[in-house]
Amino acid sequence: MFRRTIPLIFAFVVGTFMVIQFFIPHPTFQAIYNGVLDWQQVIFGFVLVVGTLSMVRHHVIRIQRKKEGYRYSMVALLGLVSMVLAGIIGGIRGGPYKWMFDYIQMPAQSSMFSLLAFFVASASYRAFRARSVTATLLLVAGVIVMLGRVPAGEYIHVGGLSLTDISTWILDYPNTAAKRGILIGVGLGMTATALKIILGIETSYLGRGD
C-alpha cells in the first residue's frame, strides 16, 4: 500500500490539482500552487545533497577496492572537499574559493569543451562522405551552413545568392519546420505521458517495487 497505492493517489491528486489551478485564479488555489513550487525547490535542494553523497560513496568504494583509475577518484574527492572548505572558511566572494574557480575549474572545463573542435574536425573528415543521395544532401547543407555562418560565406556566391543567404534560408525554413515538428511531437508525448502518470497507467516511476 505504502509503495504503490499511496504514491498513485498522491500523483493523481497533485497532478489533477496542478492542471485545474491553471484555469482558476482564486487566491486559495494560488496559495497552494505557490506552496507546491516552494516544495519543488526544497526537494531539489535535497536532490543535490543525495547526488553529492552518491558521488562520494561511488568514489570511496573505487578507492577502497583500488579499481583501475582510482587515483582520479582521489582527485575528485579532494576537489570536492577543498572547494567546500574554501567556501566555508574564506567565503565565496574572493579568497581561495574564487581563486580555485577562476584558475582551476574555469580553465579545466573550458579546455575539456574546446577539445570538441579537434574531434569534430577529425570526425567530419572521416564521416562526412557522399555515399548516398541523403548523405550528399546532409553534406551539402552542412558545408553551406558551416561557411554561411562565418564571414567567408558572404563572399562566396552561388546563382546570385551568397552562402550566408542560403544558410539563413536553410536555418529559417527547413530547420524551423523540422524543429517545429519535433517540438509538437515532444509536446504531445509529454502530455500523453503526464496523463498516463496522473491516471495511474504509467507506473514505471515507482520502480520495480514489490
Binding site: 574536425a121 567530419s124 573528415y125 572521416r126 557522399a130 555515399r131 562565418v150 567567408a152
Partner: peptide, 18 residues
C-alpha cells in the same frame, strides 16, 4: 572563419579520395 574553412577543406579532400 579559418577553422571552418579548414574543416571544409578536409571534408573536400576526404570526398575526393572517396
Amino acid at each position: 572563419t579559418i577553422a571552418h574553412l579548414f574543416m571544409v577543406l578536409m571534408i573536400v579532400i576526404g570526398n575526393v579520395g572517396h
